[in-house]
Design a binder for these strands. Sequence first.
DNA 1: TATTGTTATACTCTATAACTATA
DNA 2: TATAGTTATAGAGTATAACAATA
Lengths: 140, 140
Amino acid sequence: MPSRRADPVTVEVVELIGDVVARYHMEYEEAAARHQLTGAQAKVLNLLSLEPLPMRRIAQKLRCEPSNVTGIIDRLETRGLVERRPDPADRRVKLAAPTEEGVETAERLRESLDFAREPLAGLSEEERTSLRDLLRRMLA
Amino acid sequence: MPSRRADPVTVEVVELIGDVVARYHMEYEEAAARHQLTGAQAKVLNLLSLEPLPMRRIAQKLRCEPSNVTGIIDRLETRGLVERRPDPADRRVKLAAPTEEGVETAERLRESLDFAREPLAGLSEEERTSLRDLLRRMLA
DNA sequence: TATTGTTATACTCTATAACTATA
DNA sequence: TATAGTTATAGAGTATAACAATA
């Protein structure tokens, strides 16, 4: 991986990606805060709204230690947005699942995450498609 | 701002951007950790390597409260990477500036931040240019 | 023995409010 | 009086290590 000098276009693309990342984060945190949630809590609630998960799996998704998940779920549980259920198949496991209110909150949260939907509206169908293809190849 | 239904391409672009953000963050934190720095410390050190800044300005750049900057600079100063200098023009102001070792660390840090440089290498010059133009318009 | 989740502990980042030294 | 930086305090996220219950 020799650190060859990057050409000017590449340098600018890297900077632009930095801008996108900064903006994405800012908007994500703001959207979460509108629902009195931290970024991490919003992320977990969103995960659980797709399907209930064992504590261990949440930690893997978040790429953090399982001990941290205990606290995040504790706080969501106190808020009445999530509950811990036993796993019939393995009594060691606790499944975190959103309550009805949790599901609704996750839904409203998703709706307020307008990032890249509004700005993308300025691009034509064809341009959005080529942006999609370029991002796909970048992440491949 | 009516929440009209987004088309499939837009939805996928939003997801891809989420992936880019996640990957960017992971790589940034890892690069910082390789130098025994947190993400916030690396960000500040990088800022200061461009030019010394008053504490207040650092807080503005980080979009956080000035009181937080005190701690971050404290820790960088303890490590010998940054120093506080008086501002001749205003005795209330303290300028945070990188030490020689701080400048070197910032440089090595920048080199190890390969994100989007390596993956971008798989795109042609023309493709990188169109990616740049699309990102520019998205952020405009 | 190994695994799941928790607790205990410590560190960093964060915001708020009160303080100091300048301006 | 207003501003720059700090301190004090509290909450949240993070990692590490040790623990109880279950497999």
